[in-house]
């Protein structure tokens, strides 16, 4: 860990002022990812701006019937919040699939969006990595890439985004509220995270001098027919090989609307509106689900060790959509897949 400076921000404007004066500074809230990376010298901020005491820790109903979630609401509080549990159970389920309870007690909502990849080369400063050291090369493309991306990859990077919560937020059409020197702006969730392209060092479209203040959810939908299924190498406390968030609105046996987003397969939470469109108006059956899965995975590309993810994702999508259609969402405590 390098010898950074430490300051505590008094309010959001103060936080923005601090970051604007020092582009190599970083905000710290829960610290669960940043401190980890700093100990490995992957993150080397000159200054930490402590935002953990800013008043961004409430969950409030909005006038349009949605929710505004303060950026500092701990993941566990969000998961167990009565309004989230009752109106956005997909989000609750996805949050509880990630990390451990101790980490969820620390990790903030905003910080969850800014988690960095678990790619081993990103973490190991002795190996090339374009995300950590732009231009040094991608070690994963021809290396140990079992956990890596199958969608939206580039020659420069095949890393995945590790969050579970974000997969649900993508499916639920969340928006990200940020504040910068020029004031506030809102970023659609789909536009928040980036594909690697030739700038894999940039995970998001958040500008360096902006702070996330809140995540907003539109009025609740998909309260009955949803599921979050996480497939991983052990039954808890492991990052996803593939995770699937599925949500349906059914009219009789027909799908009126659908959401489908995947984790563990791309540089960002992967939502495919084309696949969703293919579900709409169709009967909620295996043929429909498989067709949507095939559509979503049409451009999937496997590497030496992760090609299995394509078929796993295909089966997982169909299964999760089945769970959603049946109204039998996956329980994160009971490990039998429903």
């Amino acid at each position: 860990m390098i010898n950074f400076q430490y300051v505590r921000a008094n309010d959001v404007a103060d936080a923005v002022r601090h970051i604007a004066t020092d582009p190599t500074a970083k905000f710290i809230a829960g610290g669960t990812n940043l401190i980890d990376l700093m100990k490995d010298d992957v993150e080397r901020p000159s200054r930490l701006i402590d935002i953990s005491r800013l008043p961004l820790n409430t969950v409030e109903e909005t006038t349009d019937g949605g929710l505004r979630i303060g950026a500092l609401v701990p993941n566990s509080d969000l998961a167990y919040h009565p309004l989230v549990q009752s109106r956005y159970p997909l989000l609750t389920s996805a949050i509880l699939a990630g990390a451990s309870q101790q980490l969820r007690n620390m990790a903030s909502t905003g910080g969850n969006l800014l988690q960095r990849t678990r790619c081993a080369y990103f973490y190991d400063t002795a190996t090339p990595c374009n995300k950590r050291t732009p231009g040094s090369g991608c070690s994963a493309i021809n290396g140990l890439n079992r956990i890596h991306a199958i969608l939206g990859t580039s020659e420069a990077c095949i890393a995945t985004h590790p969050s579970d919560m974000c997969v649900a937020l993508a499916a639920l059409d969340a928006t990200v509220h940020v504040t910068g020197p020029d004031g506030e702006r809102t970023i659609m969730f789909a536009d928040f995270h980036r594909l690697p392209g030739d700038t894999p060092q940039r995970d998001t479209n958040l500008r360096p001098n902006e702070i996330i203040t809140a995540i907003a959810l539109p009025a609740p939908r998909f309260v009955t027919n949803y599921s979050y299924l996480k497939i991983r190498d052990r039954l808890s406390y492991a990052f996803a090989l593939v995770s699937i968030a599925a949500a349906l609105e059914l009219e009789g046996g027909t799908i009126a609307d659908a959401r489908l987003a995947l984790g563990g397969v791309a540089h960002k939470p992967w939502r495919d509106t084309g696949a969703e469109a293919a579900l709409r108006g169709q009967p909620a059956n295996q043929a429909t689900f498989t067709r949507a899965a095939d559509l979503l995975l049409r451009d999937a590309k496997g590497f030496e060790h992760n090609a299995f993810k394509i078929d796993l994702a295909r089966r997982g999508i169909a299964r999760t959509l089945t769970q959603a259609a049946n109204g039998t969402p996956q329980s994160q405590a009971d490990k039998k897949v429903r």
Partner: peptide, 21 residues
């Protein structure tokens, strides 16, 4: 999880928590 302690009654990971915070 070996470093788990309770802060304000909640279990947290103390190795990823800066004391100054």
């Amino acid at each position: 999880g070996a470093c788990t302690v309770l802060v304000e009654g909640r279990r947290i990971i103390s190795c990823l928590t800066l004391a100054v915070m």
